[in-house]
Write a protein that binds this DNA or RNA. Structure first.
Lengths: 135, 135
DNA sequence: GCCAGAGTACTCGGATAATCCATGTCCGAGTGCGTACGG
DNA sequence: CCGTACGCACTCGGACATGGATTATCCGAGTACTCTGGC
């Protein structure tokens, strides 16, 4: 069902930044915690920057800082920042106009999936990054 | 978040079968409605067969028949049949033992994602294929 | 006319190929820090 | 001693491979229908 791990990695990244209490953290350090490469981390941090969740700082002693309170950053915020609000994909093949089922299927599926996504969204809004940190 | 369209296609397939009221339908016909190739449809139908939702019939006038009542087949049933119960993926890179955040992250994320998935699951169980059919 | 048997056409099922997306590797552009020099 | 200018090391950002997943194409195996021949 899932192919990418961006949301999980984004949550991990923000958790690391939160554990550093607003200090500047380098992408390389975060990559070490996630056990991946720094460029991948930066690509996600770029999205988070555009969403106003973190701030990038250039130069020798650069890095990323958390802008918002970790208790106020939810999984939903991260999903939106990554542009991954949708949980389900509908096949994009054109509908067969000869088949009544096919004609209405995309809209029906869209409605059904939206209902499910709305329920998921409500839960995601209730989970903050702070809850992911060790006690 | 999603890359494959199997759940959507499975729902479409079952809807087509339901519209035929238990008659035998060929994979080729279904493929025409979904606008894809017949083998792809058959692979999904194979999963649905193993789950006892449809039955395959060989031979010249073969095809697939719906076994269960469309009103009793939910999106969740289809997800289980396809083996796609999980909505989120956690990165599988090993945790960095030096980082306390990293050590606990997978478990924290697993718990958080489970909560979201449980909410989604509850909704998916409330949506049957019958609701996807045209009025 | 009825039954048996072979042939055939059509199906499903699985193996193989092409395509697309996510991730990893690499290099260029830019900025803050450190040092050296001049005042 | 203090301020300024230069060089540098280190950062982020984006372009280019690579690997895996998803979907499409193809071929083999098998079965129900059909037609023919015999009784």
């Amino acid at each position: 069902m899932i192919s990418n791990t961006r949301l999980a990695v984004a949550a991990h990244i923000v958790a690391v930044l939160a554990s550093k209490k607003g200090e500047s953290v380098k992408s390389r350090y975060v990559a070490g915690s996630v056990n991946t490469n720094a460029a991948f981390v930066r690509r996600i941090l770029c999205s988070l920057t555009k969403a106003g969740i973190v701030r990038a700082e250039m130069g020798k002693s650069g890095g990323f800082k958390l802008v918002k309170d970790p208790g106020k950053i939810t999984l939903w915020d991260l999903s939106v920042a990554l542009g991954e609000e949708r949980l389900f994909a509908v096949h994009k093949n054109p509908a067969n106009p000869c088949c009544p089922v096919s004609r209405g299927m995309k809209e029906s599926l869209g409605r059904a999936f939206s209902r499910v996504e709305k329920a998921a969204q409500a839960q995601m809004k209730r989970i903050s990054v702070k809850e992911l940190l060790p006690a």
